[in-house]
Design a protein around this nucleic acid. Structure first.
Lengths: 203, 203
DNA sequence: CCCTCAATTAACAAAAATGTTAAACAAAAT
DNA sequence: ATTTTGTTTAACATTTTTGTTAATTGAGGG
């Protein structure tokens, strides 16, 4: 047994998170989770009452953590390009850890869009406005072709996220091995920056 | 009753396809499908033996149709930029029809990557090589910054597809209404072309 | 040493989903 | 008219998954 054994409750949450959002097995049963965690299935009910409550809690935690990180980056006082590069970095790191969190957001929220409501962060709007100001300045300086903040951000998110969530498809299309894919992903941080700014990334 | 009532088998397939790949409700039960189609649940078993076989058939059909369309475009004799613009068009149209097909590919294939094997089209490799030749020529001509065919295509796919499959998330982030989102998506064909070629699309 | 109490377990109950079957039906063939 | 055939239905059986409960364990406090 490991020196610092996780408390059962925490262990369940971590295991569930891994199965749901790393392995992408969103419909994993309580039995699968229990087996993977090496505990009795009843423990899940003991600590979380029901499968749905467990799922909710795990999702909400992962989502909040992620979103907070991202908005923090976007709200910082860094110059525009540094901020964007840092956003790419954070976004990709986070998505590498939980590639299927994004995927869950997509399918699950589609059937029940309420779920996402709770992530309306207080100063989201303010951060966006400020970022947009920076973006438009950058455009005026000629560093970027005219674009709205919405399209700009969707571009970034698309270019970072899609390759992560559609790994199997892309690997098949281009006959890329697992280790090859890792390299491919790492290359993308530069590729994306260059594409967006039409210029090499800082250092 | 409608004048040209669909044959039951076809009706089931169409209904299932809609629920699975338009509504994104991948875990829809046989009952839900039967209800939506207005038929007895046993009919699904009568025509398709099991839920899984139905799912497989529906998926395989949608996938094959999509892929064929895309490869056809990529294998055509059109000049590079026309071909690419046509690819964007086809890709987006198809994804608008079945936004969650992509999503299914992502989650389901993740747990069972074999599923995708069957879509190894005979002249995929040839089409890719030819396309790459065109791409590299375009780059030499100075029409494009140096890039591999893999990154180039992943860029295109990302920029087209991600906004479709992550509609709910983006709508929430930027407070966009449903009708606003439609407009947003249509704008993207131009946006993507401009981003990739750093220049306005043809006509 | 016994009591207490949270944590754990196995066995059970309930619910939800899938799969099967035998009978009813209805149109076409004989 | 009756048989045949493919389709449809309702009722039943099975399987899978979730949820509950009562008994067991084991560490700390009195």
């Amino acid at each position: 047994m490991p020196a610092e054994e996780l408390e059962t409750e925490e262990l369940i949450k971590e295991t569930a998170k891994r199965i749901f959002f790393q392995k992408g097995h969103l419909k994993a049963t309580t039995q699968e989770i229990a087996d993977e965690a090496g505990i009795n299935r009843a423990m899940i009910h003991y600590y979380f009452r029901s499968r749905d409550l467990l799922f909710d809690k795990v999702f909400k935690e992962a989502m909040t953590k992620t979103m907070n990180k991202l908005w923090e980056v976007l709200s910082s006082d860094e110059p525009f390009r540094v901020k964007i590069y840092s956003f790419l970095d954070t976004f990709i790191s986070q998505a590498v850890d939980y590639p299927y969190l994004e995927n869950f957001i997509i399918t699950e929220i589609a059937t029940d869009p309420e779920r996402i409501e709770c992530f309306g962060f207080k100063d989201k709007k303010k951060a966006l406005i400020q970022l947009n100001k920076q973006l438009q300045q950058e455009i005026k300086k000629g560093g970027l072709a005219p674009i709205t903040i919405e399209h700009f951000m969707v571009n970034m998110m698309s270019l970072c996220n899609y390759p992560l969530i559609s790994k199997p498809l892309i690997q098949n299309l281009f006959s890329i091995t697992d280790s090859g894919y890792k390299k491919f992903l790492l290359e993308r941080k530069e590729i994306v920056y260059r594409l967006i700014f039409n210029k090499n990334p800082p250092k």
